[in-house]
Design a protein around this nucleic acid. Structure first.
Length: 729
DNA sequence: ACGGCTAGAACT
DNA sequence: TAGTTCTAG
């Protein structure tokens, strides 16, 4: 039975857990012979031995630092073992680290609310567990305390320097005259000890941890004693800690803001901030930041541990420094395709494993123009609704790039939206997917309205005119892509040759081979089938988001958001949202009959959002070599691919004729398209949503407002808030 | 003209 | 919303 939290106290117990030189540990687990040896993980070995991205502690003893090149590391430590980051599609592939991180998260999440802060860091809210322990088996009642727990560091306790700190620690942990906060903290220390031991046992990874009354302090503490140690910050030590803490050590103050505090206000330690009134800080840095600064100076941070085990976005990027900058559209397209492949694969996994769908696709690039050298303009980021399917993501991304390039060149007054000869250079590309929302438990019902072929459907072969035209490779392609016909490069069968022809200069042949498959995209058609499979089974078993309760919590929060007043607005945004487009279709068809509780499989089959790939492979009768399937499926294809979902032929035909998707990335719609949209908009009666069953309404809202969440309001202002979660949630 | 890659959040 | 900027590891 959950222990009620005494109102008087309200103290929270928060832990920050940080894997020690994580990538190195992952590699050492892979290759146990590396254990104990000075080791570093390096990427891109060609240039000066590659860049270090993680350095083991043995190597640190030799003075090896992150952000040395491999060669430098060898100089300082000749015997260092340099392990290369896995490479896939010509770029670093961090998936093994991500997966290893997930292993750890799943263990840490057992004892309380868990927030995955990064690939190797986690926050835990252990308040309830600590309260429970204090009520049932308080430390003071223990005869023996685990050895490991006795190695903990208690900030402010190290008075008897060095001398059998274990005895001191035990005494502190078991003090019966401690105040409630310290007793809770002691429980937290024991719990975290257990968790860390469990992590070690199950994953072979060591980690360090900080235990305190809020996130900020826990984070500070976790870094104080590494590796494989833990530190706690009793209330009584907070002031001493902050008073002398260099301002730049504080999270969020390591950058420009911290520098500004030093330079403008003469602040060198966090304690120095106490000299300034809240008004003054607000005046200098704005209302929110000012208050935040005022609070952290006092160790106040009401920030809650968010229940989130999964990342909020996925991205894949690569830089092309200096001489390797990309100069041709073709080479850009090649790399974008690689990045999109990786992204798509990860999206597939996420969909399968976590039942989540991303809604927004964003392209970032860095560029310069050689002509007016260094008058460096920003290459604009572009985003659009995300459609599943590797080929679609590739197309959309490429179109985003072209829109960005045109804008970029325009900013220089370049008229000829030229391809390779306007002197631009691309120095970095990245593609990311965001607004990832769970497919809700009841979503099987809404999925019925996704006539797959409509929404995701319409392969690019069928409806190429839907796209901003590329016209990229033709040197004469001046004057915008808006109207010209569409040669979708990678979908033209000989497209590859075209591509090769233009990119020989830039790329090695090996790299090009990879592109051959793009048009066919076998991996995704497979994963689609599995995904479809999931939806299918979801229909029957009406959901168990096993993965994690946290997600469910979020869901319920999201679903409970009152939406009435904004409904009109939602409709509009719906029109821009790919998810919504199929909903519209549903409305259009007026097929309300199966709105709820209709669990027949036939319906389920028709709605795979991934129908496109199915249809694609269906239609083209692609024969995929077995090996290809095997290696491409890996993580996407899990339990059951034998029960493939077969879309009836009629559906496919329907798909081909249904007007397509979404308002794409802004610009240059083909006339016809926008007309067809207008039509649809007018056809929709906004009140229709109101007539749907409640559950469906909720689901629709979740689709329409994927990112909406009650957001960070203000933090605590009073000392009372020191320990308590912010009142605003 | 180098650190590369990834992620989250605030703000406009 | 879309896009930018900052931050961190």
């Amino acid at each position: 039975m959950p222990v009620a939290r005494p109102d008087s106290s309200g103290a929270r117990i928060i832990a920050h857990v940080d894997l020690d030189c994580f990538y190195v540990q992952v590699e050492q687990r892979k290759q146990p012979k590396l254990r104990g040896l000075p080791t570093a993980v390096v990427q891109y070995n060609e240039w000066k031995g590659g860049g270090l991205i993680a350095v083991g502690y043995e190597a640190r003893d030799y003075g090896v630092k992150r952000s040395m090149r491999g060669d430098e590391a060898k100089e300082v430590c000749p015997q260092i073992e340099l392990v290369q980051v896995p490479v896939a599609r010509g770029k670093a592939d961090l998936s093994s680290y991500r997966n290893a991180g997930s292993e750890v998260v799943s263990i840490l999440a057992r004892k309380g609310r868990c927030e995955r802060a990064s690939i190797d860091e986690v926050y835990l809210d252990l308040t309830d567990a600590a309260e429970a322990m204090l009520a049932e088996t308080p430390p003071e009642s223990l005869d023996e305390v685990d050895e490991e727990a006795l190695k903990s560091h208690i900030l402010g306790l190290e008075s008897k320097d060095g001398n059998d700190s274990k005895a001191t620690v035990k005494e502190w942990l078991c003090r019966c005259d401690a105040d409630h906060r310290d007793k809770l903290l002691a429980c937290g220390v024991l719990i975290v000890t257990e968790l860390r031991m469990q992590v070690l046992k199950e994953t072979e990874f060591t980690c360090s941890a900080g235990i305190a009354h809020n996130k900020m302090l826990a984070k500070l503490a976790s870094g104080m004693n590494k590796p494989a140690q833990q530190t706690t910050v009793p209330f009584s030590s907070v002031k001493g800690l902050l008073d002398s803490l260099p301002i730049k050590k504080m999270k969020q103050l390591g950058g420009k803001l911290g520098t500004s505090l030093q330079n403008e206000l003469g602040v060198t330690t966090v304690g120095d901030l106490l000299k300034f009134s809240e008004d003054k800080l607000q005046e200098s840095y704005g209302f929110n930041t000012g208050t935040w600064l005022w609070n952290i100076a006092r160790g106040i941070s009401g920030e809650e541990v968010q229940a989130r085990l999964l990342p909020k976005s996925h991205g894949s990027g690569k830089s092309f420094p200096g001489p390797r900058a990309l100069k041709t559209v073709a080479s850009v397209q090649h790399w974008l395709n690689q990045l999109c492949e990786e992204l798509s694969e990860r999206l597939c996994s996420d969909l399968e494993q976590n039942k989540r769908i991303a809604h927004t696709l964003t392209l970032h690039a860095s560029a310069f123009k050689s002509s007016d050298s260094d008058s460096r303009k920003k290459f604009p980021s572009k985003s659009c609704p995300l459609r599943y399917g590797t080929a679609k993501i590739q197309e959309d991304t490429f179109n985003l790039f072209q829109a960005g390039l045109r804008e970029f060149l325009g900013s220089f007054g370049v008229k000829t939206q030229g391809s390779q000869y306007s002197g631009w250079r691309i120095t970095a590309l990245s593609v990311s997917a965001s607004k990832i929302v769970p497919v809700l438990s009841g979503t099987c019902s809404i999925m019925k309205y996704f006539n797959g072929p409509d929404k995701f459907g319409s392969t690019s072969e069928q409806l190429p005119d839907n796209f901003i035209d590329a016209a990229p490779l033709s040197p004469s392609g001046s004057e915008s892509y808006s109207t010209l016909n569409s040669t979708e490069l990678q979908n033209e069968l000989p497209g590859e040759q075209v591509w090769i022809e233009h990119s020989m200069a830039d790329l090695g042949q090996l790299e090009m081979k990879a592109n051959t498959w793009n048009g066919l995209d076998p991996s995704c058609s497979i994963s689609k089938q599995t995904s479809g499979q999931w939806f299918h089974s979801g229909t029957e078993s009406s959901s168990s988001l096993d993965q994690n309760k946290p997600q469910n919590r979020d869901d319920s929060r999201m679903r409970s958001v009152p939406i009435k007043s904004n409904q009109q607005e939602h409709k509009k945004s719906a029109l821009k949202d790919k998810g919504a487009s199929s909903i519209l279709n549903f409305f259009k068809s007026g097929d309300l009959s199966c709105s709820s509780g209709n669990h027949d499989t036939e319906h389920a089959e028709t709605l795979l959002p991934l129908g496109d790939c199915l249809s694609e492979s269906n239609k083209k009768q692609v024969n995929i070599p077995k090996e290809r399937l095997d290696n491409s499926t890996g993580d996407c294809l899990s339990e059951s691919n034998q029960n493939q979902v077969n879309i009836p032929k009629e559906r496919l035909a329907e798909a081909a004729t249904t007007s397509t998707t979404t308002d794409r990335c802004g610009s240059d719609q083909i006339q016809q398209r926008s007309e067809s949209w207008k039509l649809r908009i007018e056809e929709i009666d906004p009140s229709v949503i109101d007539e749907l069953p409640k559950e469906i309404q909720d689901e629709i809202q979740a689709w329409l407002r994927p990112s909406k969440r009650p957001h960070r309001v203000k933090q605590g202002f009073t000392i009372a808030d020191y320990f308590s979660p912010s009142k605003n949630r």
